[in-house]
């Protein structure tokens, strides 16, 4: 059974058909790329997968479990973590607290424990600190744990967002244009980090990019979206030879 199974997915906003008849599935451990020109509907698909928008038709299931109609937060609990195209960090919180908030579902304690500051409170908070630092270390952010997220520079902010999504222990990680706004060197570095993340955390990744070269470099399989519909899918080397894909990207 595929980890993620998307069948006949479609959504309309008013008269606009944003996504139409999209089918794909991702196997466990895969690094899957979703590419397409600007406005093709890539982020909309992410929003459908994570329950931010409700699809007009189609099914989405994770490990066979249907997730349509679930709240975004419940979908995360089922195993979907994501980042956003326009970084959405908790800006006025420290880097460490950004991660600790994501750890919340794994380390709960009651309101009474908080109010009375029982030993349990200190024990759990301490454990959360240790766990959070582990995630920060992977991304080289550990020594910036105590600064406000808004004071990080752009690259580290992107990394923190990935680390935060990972901290929820997702089965499938959705990355929305992780390399947007980065220079070529930073991009290469980021791609290496993404591979490392996949191997180290043994998770599946679905990545949005519009830079084809970048995606074909690391993804095992890609899906090309144009005007909300499938243009091609398969292994990168073949898809990139596809005449329709070349036309969509370079024009006639």
């Amino acid at each position: 059974m595929a980890l993620l199974e998307v069948k006949n997915l479609g959504v309309s906003f008013g008269g606009l058909r944003a996504v139409d008849e999209v089918d794909f599935h991702i196997e466990e451990g895969q690094l899957y790329g979703l590419i397409g020109p600007n406005g093709a509907g890539k982020t909309t698909i992410f929003n459908l997968l994570t329950g931010v928008y409700q699809p007009t038709e189609g099914t989405i299931s994770i490990n066979g479990e249907n997730i349509i109609g679930k709240k975004t937060s419940d979908i995360n609990l089922v195993g979907l973590g994501r980042t956003f195209q326009n970084i959405r960090l908790f800006h006025n919180m420290t880097v460490l607290d950004n991660i600790k908030t994501a750890l919340d579902n794994q380390y709960k304690y009651s309101l009474l424990t908080s109010i009375l500051k029982t030993p349990k409170y200190f024990a759990i908070e301490e454990e959360m600190d240790r766990e959070a630092i582990k995630y920060l270390e992977v991304f080289g952010l550990a020594d910036q744990a105590d600064i406000l997220a808004s004071n990080l520079s752009y690259g580290p902010q992107r990394k923190l967002e990935i680390a935060r999504a990972l901290a929820t222990k997702p089965k499938l990680l959705l990355l929305d244009e992780p390399a947007a706004g980065m220079n070529p060197n930073e991009t290469v570095e980021l791609m290496n980090t993404i591979k490392l993340v996949r191997d180290r955390f043994k998770i599946t990744i679905l990545l949005i990019e519009h830079d084809m070269k970048l995606v074909s470099g690391i993804c095992e399989e890609i899906f090309v979206l144009n005007f909300g519909r499938e243009l091609a899918k398969g292994i990168p080397s073949e898809v990139l030879k596809n005449q329709a894909v070349i036309t969509a990207y370079l024009g006639e």
Binding site: R88, H91, T168
Partner: peptide, 17 residues
């Protein structure tokens, strides 16, 4: 604070806002 800073991101990390 996470809800104040970004409610959509809070939802995305499993918080029932």
């Amino acid at each position: 604070c996470s809800i104040r800073d970004n409610d959509i991101a809070s939802e995305s990390i499993g918080i029932n806002v």
